[in-house]
Design a protein around this nucleic acid. Structure first.
Length: 606
RNA sequence: GCGCCCGUAGCUCAGUCGGAUAGAGCGGCGGUUUCCUAAACCGCAGGCCGGCAGUUCGAAUCUGCCCGGGCGCACCA
């Protein structure tokens, strides 16, 4: 087969963190952090403890307050019972706009709703599409290896997770001010290309390489695989072709290989465009060919290599006992290099070129061992940047009944076909909903297809990101396409409804009054949600966990839809309408920023 | 056999460097539309957080062992 895709897998547990106090000049602009810092400062004064030791939390039950401080640790330091400490501190604290109450061993804080609304809404309005962004990554580079399909074959469902997760990480880090280098490490090298070249040579007139070159190449590829097994003549010709390719000779073989690469990349680009995905560099395995020998020499000079059973290996048992049985192979006994050699060469090259803060490999968990080996080799070579290299692993994509979808034997589910199927169903549902609406409220005919595309792809992408990435993804078509519950379309729908209010307010000339933020008292949960957004964005990026952002948006939409049901925006008195419109405007901003980061489009109407 | 990962409601999953009464979606049952999009909202039912020990003032969360499932285990990628 043409390389194994890097897709699929499993992993390690990462945890989200509370907003941590940050004193860096690039501190995140988070309204929540502002309030928490204010409280921590006052607490430090009242208790005599260092501000950095005082952990402000979000209460489990929002009825208790907006922020909380458990007094257990302070109590221990003061050798007094926690509830007594809480009561004592409550009496000492006086923070403007924040009410303090002791409840058992806890101090609960409630931010005045008017103060909260003014602070949060002003910040969102000021930042707009940048709300949630930061400069914490300024001057730092993050390299992200993702998607990485194999040429001469269409992208299939096995590539979807790496593609979607990687693209989101790329957007998240860019939003936080990092320089991001998204690399598509395509599988464009290997002995199998010898066979493909021979197949093209022999049978190019028997398949349609004009209209759908990718499909034609797939047929030729499959035929070459069969011929290699059955026809010794074909096999030796294929070997010769691969030798020529490896030799670097710029002849017929290389020209054909180049053509295959170009055709394949054009096919990938169409799919990427539909999904809104971009890479910064396309560097296939072939790119690293010239660096393989230098890489091996580098390892040899570091003194970490040895010959075992005729192969050149790096023994890793001294680094990690569980790797004692599986050294890293750099050269087979027949002299050829391996996957690990290429990735090691890539790693050196990337470090030399970018001096990255982090180098992320968005690759399925089934390749965990491979990346552990690579990191262990770096450790043996005593390269201090080894911790910056991370395998961002993820679970398998499974069909109903937990059967592996992209199996090597069964029918390969082509990604474009899957997208078509989902978009088609989205169009059908959209049509139904539209038919049930007042004619004046319906979408213009011309926009239907566009919105169906956004909604269908949104459903697909969101399903891949709503769970922790280490968990397997269950791809149940019916569930994803029902668009009810925890889905991308649910988020998009919420955004569309709120957007619609703004449009109607504009056309009715409403919203000109002066907002009175105290009138937004009932929107406390929403405002608190808004205030957390920058922290969630940062945490999602740091943990490489898009699901944190996805879950946040689901929670926010639940709050918003609830509020929408209870509170009318239009047709109220001027101050009330203006206040609620400010909230609606902020909702649209936060939702569309969040959706954009997850790679979902946010239609204005649906 | 060894290594790593997962195990929370019937199903799919959240659960904040350990903290106050464990939450949501789907499915089930019952409600909500003279009102800015009902792709929405509300209520009810449903849990020994796989099991047993341990650490701690406090454990779904940390540690150990066990059970169940998955992935991987040098000359493939």
């Amino acid at each position: 087969m043409v390389g194994g895709s890097r897709a699929a897998g499993q992993a390690r547990r990462a945890r989200s963190r509370l907003p941590t106090p940050s004193r860096s000049p690039y501190a995140l602009r988070s309204p929540m952090r502002l309030f928490a810092d204010q409280i921590a400062r006052a607490l430090a004064q009242a208790s005599g403890l260092a501000e950095s030791e005082l952990k402000i939390e979000l209460p489990r039950d929002p009825a208790h307050g907006d922020l909380a401080f458990p007094c257990f640790l302070v109590a221990k330091a003061l050798r007094k019972p926690p509830p007594a400490v809480a009561a004592e501190l409550a009496g000492k604290l006086a923070i403007e706009g924040i009410e303090v109450k002791a409840l058992g061993p806890y101090l609960n804080f409630r931010i005045d709703r008017g103060v909260l609304a003014r602070a949060v809404l002003a910040e969102i309005q000021a930042q707009g599409a940048q709300y949630g962004s930061a400069a914490i990554g300024a001057g730092k580079t993050v390299v992200i290896d993702f998607s990485s399909p194999n040429i001469a074959k269409p992208m299939h469902v096995g590539h979807i997770r790496s593609t979607i997760l990687g693209a989101t990480l790329r957007r998240l880090f860019a939003f936080l001010g990092y320089r991001v280098v998204g690399i598509n490490h395509i599988g464009d090298w290997g002995a199998q290309f010898g066979g493909l070249v021979v197949a093209i040579r022999r049978w190019k007139n028997e398949v349609d390489l004009e209209r759908d070159p990718v499909q034609g190449l797939l047929e030729l590829y499959q035929r070459s695989k069969k011929a290699s097994e059955e026809d010794p003549q074909f096999e030796s010709e294929a070997r010769a072709a691969y030798q020529e390719l490896e030799s670097g000779k710029d002849g017929e073989v290389r020209a054909l290989w180049r053509w295959v690469t170009e055709v394949s990349l054009r096919g990938f680009d169409k799919t990427y465009a539909r999904l809104g995905i971009e890479h910064d560099l396309v560097r296939g395995e072939s790119f690293y060919e010239p660096f393989l020998e230098p890489t091996i020499r580098r390892a040899e000079q570091a003194g970490v290599t040895e010959v075992s059973q005729g192969a050149l290996v790096v023994a890793l048992g001294g680094i990690d006992k569980s790797l004692a049985e599986t050294p890293c192979l750099l050269r087979q006994s027949n002299g050829t290099t391996l996957y690990a050699t290429r990735d090691l060469a890539g790693l050196f090259h990337r470090w030399d070129e970018f001096h990255f803060e982090r180098c992320l490999y968005v690759v399925g968990g089934e390749q965990k061992l491979h990346f552990r080996q690579l990191k262990a080799v770096l450790k043996r070579m005593q390269l201090d940047w080894e911790p910056r290299v991370e395998h961002i692993d993820f679970g398998l994509l499974l069909g109903p009944g937990r059967v592996k979808l992209a199996s090597r034997k069964g029918e390969v589910l082509v990604l474009d076909d899957l997208i078509d199927e989902v978009v088609e169903e989205a169009a059908r549902i959209l049509g139904e909903k539209q038919a049930a609406m007042e004619p004046a409220e319906r979408l213009p005919e011309a926009r239907l297809a566009e919105v169906a595309e956004a909604v269908g792809i949104g459903a697909l992408c969101f399903n891949d990101q709503k769970r922790e990435r280490i968990k397997d993804v269950l791809f149940d078509k019916a569930e994803i396409l029902s668009f009810e519950g925890d889905t991308g379309p649910y988020l998009q729908y919420t955004h569309a409804r709120f957007t619609r209010i703004l449009a109607k307010a504009a056309s009715a000339g409403e919203g000109g009054g002066t907002p009175d933020y105290a009138l937004l008292a009932e929107a406390g949960p929403i405002l608190l949600h808004f205030a957390r957004f920058p922290d969630v964005v940062r945490s999602s990026a740091e943990r490489c966990e898009p699901s944190e952002l996805a879950q946040y948006l689901l929670g926010l939409c639940r709050e918003l839809n609830n509020w929408y049901r209870e509170h009318r925006v239009l047709g109220q008195d001027a101050a009330l309408s203006a206040s609620r419109l400010a909230l609606v405007r902020a909702s649209k901003t936060v939702l569309s920023n969040g959706l954009r980061l997850l790679g979902l489009r946010a239609p204005e109407q649906m």
